[in-house]
């Protein structure tokens, strides 16, 4: 499986993502700088975590207007798989590739800890290796992870099974509406999530469930 990671000024989880992808796919991902105009032809494009542009204006707002985003939107429109983690999720919502918005955590503090979440939809290319209803621990590290969508949008994404991951067991770390931790677009080829699956791929990390997400994509690409 060929992959690419888009890097912005202030990205800081890009190396974790490179490591995870190389380890799991056996192929080194391509690194794409935000000023480039074309996303290479790959099976999966990743927008990694970090603090692009120092979260100026709104988290992800400036990065979502970078030159590379134009082609990313086009590639996503043609069905290429796109994964945004943490700041990547914020960037994808700001770019309009995913519905809703990510706001300041309800508790106002930066949260850096493990949460528990449930894979509520395993019928997607990102989650097929999970059991439906599988509850797993995953690290989060963010200040703006409070997912919000208006009532109409929320109903639409719930009815359409676009919520893939939900915080569970009272571990919602940010006040996210409906405990939403990760959603896809209507077509199902773009996933955004606040937790970091790339940091849960080795027993030394305390778990390997994050691998399931990448292995689901690997299966799909095979």
């Amino acid at each position: 499986m060929k992959t690419a990671v888009i890097v912005f000024p202030g990205s800081n989880r890009d190396r974790d993502m490179f490591h995870a992808l190389e380890h799991i796919t056996g192929t080194r991902p391509l690194s794409v700088w935000h000023t480039e105009s074309t996303v290479p032809d790959v099976d999966l494009v990743i927008v990694p975590g970090g603090f692009s542009y120092g979260d100026y204006l709104r988290a992800g707002a400036i990065a979502a207007r970078s030159p590379i985003l134009k082609d990313l939107v086009a590639k996503a429109g043609s069905g290429v798989a796109v994964l945004g983690v943490c700041n990547g999720f914020q960037i994808l919502t700001e770019a309009g590739l995913l519905p809703g918005a990510l706001m300041r955590n309800a508790g106002l503090t930066f949260v850096c800890r493990e949460i528990r979440m449930e894979t509520v939809n395993n019928a997607t290319r990102f989650s097929s290796k999970f059991r439906k209803g599988q509850v797993w621990r995953c690290p989060v590290a963010h200040h703006d992870g409070n997912y919000f969508a208006d009532a109409e949008t929320l109903k639409r994404i719930e009815d359409n099974d676009q919520v893939i991951f939900r915080y569970t067991d009272g571990s919602n770390p940010n006040g996210s509406i409906n405990d939403i931790a990760g959603i896809t677009n209507a077509k199902g080829n773009v996933l955004g999530m606040m937790p970091h699956p790339e940091n849960l791929i080795e027993p030394l990390n305390g778990g390997v469930e994050g691998r399931l997400l990448f292995e689901s994509l690997l299966d799909e690409a095979a």
Partner: peptide, 9 residues
């Protein structure tokens, strides 16, 4: 519309 506001919120 393009940048200064996020009209979702």
């Amino acid at each position: 519309e393009k940048l200064l506001a996020n009209t979702v919120i």
